[in-house]
């Protein structure tokens, strides 16, 4: 790919830096505003202190159809506490100032459309944000966001799924900047005991379509699972498990889970991961 360096964008560059060390990157998710705006910032900083490579900050939404109960509850609590989009941008700003790593926002589409797509892109870039992960926006409907992201040099992370046809994977990866988010299971977010056997073939199909890094998320919750996924993926994405760790042990719990997952993604791979 001739322009692979621009497509790598912010998050892709950080992931490749980890890959160059012979390991997968660790991507950590927590929602903004949970349990409070300041408490959320502290929890996210704890992921940084524990050794995460890329951050995803969730924008709590009233109708999160891709989320299981853990993240749903967190979003409900954040919104009941009066969280506004400006607080999410404030969280991004504080975290980006604290950490020298890419800070993405993960959001359902309607809040962005309502805020104004261009306006959000400008404000996110100004806050030091790296881009968006959009679980309910497909590139087919994403022209306005794609244009705004390109203008503001933001990452556009779209999702691929085990059900995606090769044609759709081609279309989706061609629209991504940063990395490609591969959902490991057919289902919503939530920690799972069982590793998914759908993820590895999906990563292989995705890598056949793009030179971008591929991150795998949905269901990863501990160091062993992270190590399993790190054996074939460029990045391991963890979300619900961080919310649970925060519920159980506060920022210290988040930090210790991060350290454990960071160890998981550094375990020796039996074979190098193809780019």
């Amino acid at each position: 790919m001739s322009d692979v360096s621009t497509e790598l964008g912010n998050a892709g560059t950080a992931i490749r830096k980890a890959n160059d060390e012979g390991r997968a990157a660790l991507v950590g998710y927590l929602p903004a505003g949970y349990p409070t705006v300041d408490g959320g910032v502290d929890a996210i900083k704890a992921m940084v202190d524990g050794g995460v490579d890329v951050l995803e900050i969730g924008l709590p939404y009233s109708d999160p159809v891709m989320d299981g109960v853990t993240i749903q509850r967190a979003a409900e609590i954040a919104l009941a506490g009066g969280l506004r989009i400006r607080d999410v941008l404030g969280t991004v700003e504080k975290v980006a100032a604290y950490a020298d790593l890419p800070v993405l926002v993960m959001t359902y589409w309607n809040p962005i459309e309502r805020y104004g797509v261009d306006r959000f892109a400008v404000d996110l870039a100004a806050a030091g944000g790296a881009g968006l992960i959009t679980p309910d926006l497909i590139p087919d409907e994403g022209a306005e966001w794609i244009a705004a992201a390109d203008k503001n040099e933001l990452d556009k992370v779209f999702l691929v799924s085990p059900s995606s046809t090769d044609a759709r994977i081609g279309l989706t990866t061609a629209s991504c900047r940063g990395f490609v988010y591969a959902t490991a299971v057919m289902g919503v977010t939530g920690a799972r005991d069982q590793a998914s056997d759908l993820a590895a073939p999906l990563v292989a199909r995705t890598k056949a379509a793009t030179g971008l890094p591929v991150g795998v998320g949905l269901g990863v919750s501990n160091a062993d699972q992270a190590a399993d996924v790190a054996a074939y993926a460029d990045a391991v994405i963890v979300g619900s498990a961080f919310v649970k760790a925060l519920n159980a042990g506060g920022p210290a719990g988040v930090r210790s889970l991060t350290e454990s997952l960071a160890e998981g993604v550094r375990r020796e791979r039996s074979t190098p991961v193809a780019r």
């Binding site: 159809v65 891709m66 589409w109 309607n110 679980p135 309910d136 926006l137 497909i138 087919d140 409907e141 779209f158 999702l159 691929v160 799924s161 085990p162 059900s163 995606s164 046809t165 759709r168 989706t172 959902t183 057919m186």
Partner: peptide
């Protein structure tokens, strides 16, 4: 073809549901 009635309609859903 993509389900649009003027600027309305379309598909704003997880990729997992698009092929189905």
């Amino acid at each position: 073809q993509l389900g649009h009635f003027g600027r309305f309609g379309g598909r704003f859903l997880p990729e997992a549901l698009i092929a189905p």
